[in-house]
Design a binder for these strands. Sequence first.
DNA 1: GGGTTCATGTAATGGGTTACATGATTCC
DNA 2: GGAATCATGTAACCCATTACATGAACCC
Lengths: 179, 179
Amino acid sequence: MAAGSVSFRHFILGLLKQQPMSGYDIKRLLKGLGWLVDGPSFGNIYSTLHALLKDDLVTVKVIPNQNKPPRKVYSITEAGRQELHEWVNQPVTNNLSLKAFVMRLILAGSFSQARLVAHLQQRCEQVTAHHVALKQTVEALDEGADLQRLALDHALALATAELAWLDSTLKRLSRQPLG
Amino acid sequence: MAAGSVSFRHFILGLLKQQPMSGYDIKRLLKGLGWLVDGPSFGNIYSTLHALLKDDLVTVKVIPNQNKPPRKVYSITEAGRQELHEWVNQPVTNNLSLKAFVMRLILAGSFSQARLVAHLQQRCEQVTAHHVALKQTVEALDEGADLQRLALDHALALATAELAWLDSTLKRLSRQPLG
DNA sequence: GGGTTCATGTAATGGGTTACATGATTCC
DNA sequence: GGAATCATGTAACCCATTACATGAACCC
């Protein structure tokens, strides 16, 4: 319920906004694309779908399937669309999680170029802040804390790389928006 | 219980191996260092500590504190040391999670240089595999899936940066081991 | 005959968060 | 006088994973 929290609830709702799908379709889609590192499990997908249905954010259409279990294709409802819209417009809470970022990236991008850019900029701010904090921590570290330094160094390298990516991506998007 | 799963249970045990601490100390330590992005909550720390105590992996010493609530300082037991040792020596399951990696990094490093290097090499293999998978996915992507491409691109940038870091770090460690 | 894919679901469990509750001390 | 820090803990809840269960079709 927390503002900006990302659950698969919203993510799945976002996928259904783009096109009606069955639970199996969703699983396949997420499995096929390796970006989220690990897609949600079946259990999670199906129960999320049931929950969405209970809240009238989606509807089902059972489609009989030649000699196979019937497919249950879920579509987003008007209420679902609205909920999603509201959710995508509220700012993310201070959450650096990659998973959350990527999920929101997909969702925000499916709304409008402006939302996409706003989301990337927000990420930029957060990662910058994180980067600064890491640097300060490194400097405050006492001698001999080599492991901590190693871990911090790792985090710094990643943050730096991400900032570079965000920067170049934002520039590219301002030159040529996504189709 | 899964081999290689990282829970705070083991992480906390690892911290206690380095020095006895209270729950509050642990919280402060994790809060002070921003590396793990988000430290565990109080609830989690205290209940983990209780669980460790129940399993005889740690002991407590209650230290009365001038006009303050007494501090409960936990120390690792021999059984705890052994459990930790076994755990740190089993290979990580295919888990790309940064959090898991960093936690294990700290733990492995506190054992020996060899363990540390092994852990970094393992990470290297996993990230490489991930990188390859991402590239293949990008190539298999059909036209117009711009958002997916964006997300994949982001993931690729991070993976590339991490590999570079791992590579240079491994080289550096082989030249000059940690003190 | 045996594995893989399609397709759905349930139940148990785990791991963690948030919010709540308490209470003295120190700093502004 | 009021906030922050020190210091502990409990209980409710949420999200997600694992393992289990079912069953037919298709390919080797």
